[in-house]
Design a protein around this nucleic acid. Structure first.
Lengths: 253, 253
DNA sequence: TAGTGGTCTAGACCACGGC
DNA sequence: CCGTGGTCTAGACCACTAC
């Protein structure tokens, strides 16, 4: 039942401190945007070494409650999420974002022909004779701050034909507007940790939670049009869906 | 383009070390289940202090690549995920898990009447005259290891009527089998960091990614039957859906 | 220049697991 | 018992930000 210790028994000091700070942050003593005392001051206040204070702050950073800035201080993070609709992915970014009062923009990183990894090649039905595909990497920003990294693979003809609009527009909408009707999209959602590299793109520390939206979109004749994954900042994005009875099925099987 | 440093320029030592270890893990030099050298040995090998080695290992833990065990060592994590279907939530745990070759069980934590927070009360249409509801907390295990924490709120009558089956069975299926047909389920999926408390339940370190499945299920007459959230281990769970054309809508709006 | 967080050290002691 | 990781200290130096 009570799998955690009370505040005094056998919890490490850094945890006692970070839990106390956590409560103070959530209770509003340190509201979003406010600054915590300096590491030195906290060391004096809690009568511990600076190393231990830093460990406590690391706990808070790992929980996404604060962020630290060299030369400035430690600040409580502001939090509000953007909601993406699974049910209506065509309005995926453009319409949905506007409705939520944010501007969505695209920052292209790369767009090139290469030989994709085997799992991608299999999904796109690539043959040994034509093993290549376009790979696009772009960053999605809302209100000028990066929120997601999109890595997409296109068959050669689609990538070549839509080279320009794909690089600066939203994928599903661009395909739909250029005669590639989306008949079916297979989606999985998962969560992982930010690596150092991805963290660099999305301005996140190592280990921060990411939402992964993996997708394969099929057109007419079950032809795969695009596949890829969108790595979204877990602290800034969420996905929503409404399931009605015809989707729900029954428990009998 | 190249937003990260080369391996020698101005990257902190702990990052250089953790990135090197990361490559070795991903390349197979340290396969899943294998043990890394001890902190002391690594300190000798990389010619750094034990503190710096520990910082590097913390980076790997934060990325979910390894886990540390006092008295034993640091081991590369095994990774395989369980897939939950959004499209067919009634077979949510029971059928789906069996198909994936794992056994799903329930470990009840609590089942009690209390006054839920305002947002929950609003969703359940609670009145000031009847502000209470049942809250259930349970842990979902696959193959005896905890994978998710489920916190659900039920209206008083449903909680009282189905007290027994709800505590040990899967929520959607239990409701469906007892005459509460699910007409509509509203779902959002997000990701957060594990707190110390939740980490204790799910055997995760502070800050580990969690998938949050928030749901409100409505029965006949749009009556809310249950709402709540499932906090799943990000390293063990994923959600899938298939969207067909009738779901997809068009881009015109 | 003063104050902040970031890195790194050398060393001590403790708690746990396995032999 | 030894080897492992976990905690904590005191102190040094650096890099960045603001004034």
């Amino acid at each position: 039942m009570d799998r955690q210790r009370g505040n005094q028994s056998r919890m490490p000091l850094h945890l006692v401190i970070s839990e106390k700070l956590r409560e103070q942050i959530l209770s509003g003593k340190y509201p979003p945007g406010s600054q915590l005392p300096s590491e030195f001051d906290m060391g004096v206040q809690f009568e511990v070494s600076r190393t231990t204070v830093r460990r406590a702050i690391a706990n808070l950073i790992n929980q996404g409650l604060v962020s630290a800035h060299r030369g400035r201080g430690v600040f409580v993070k502001e939090r509000q999420k953007v909601i993406f609709s699974l049910s209506n992915p065509l309005s995926f970014f453009a319409t949905e974002l506007a409705r939520q009062g944010v501007t969505g923009t695209i920052d292209p990183i790369s767009f090139e022909v290469l030989q994709p990894p085997p799992d991608i090649a299999a999904v796109l039905n690539l043959t040994n004779a034509e093993p290549q595909a376009y790979r696009q990497q772009k960053i999605i920003l809302t209100n000028q701050t990066p929120i997601a990294l999109d890595i997409a693979y296109f068959p050669l003809d689609i990538g070549a034909a839509l080279s320009e609009p794909l690089q600066h527009g939203f994928t599903y909408a661009t395909l739909d507007q250029n005669g590639f009707s989306l008949e079916r999209v297979e989606v999985t959602l998962e969560s992982t940790h930010a690596t150092h590299q991805v963290g660099g793109y999305l301005d996140l520390p190592i280990g921060a939670p990411l939402l992964i939206y993996r997708y394969v979109a099929y057109g007419e004749g079950d032809r795969p049009l695009v596949c890829g994954e969108i790595l979204s900042r877990g602290d800034r994005a969420s996905y929503s869906a409404v399931l009605t009875k015809k989707d729900l099925g029954s428990y009998t099987n």
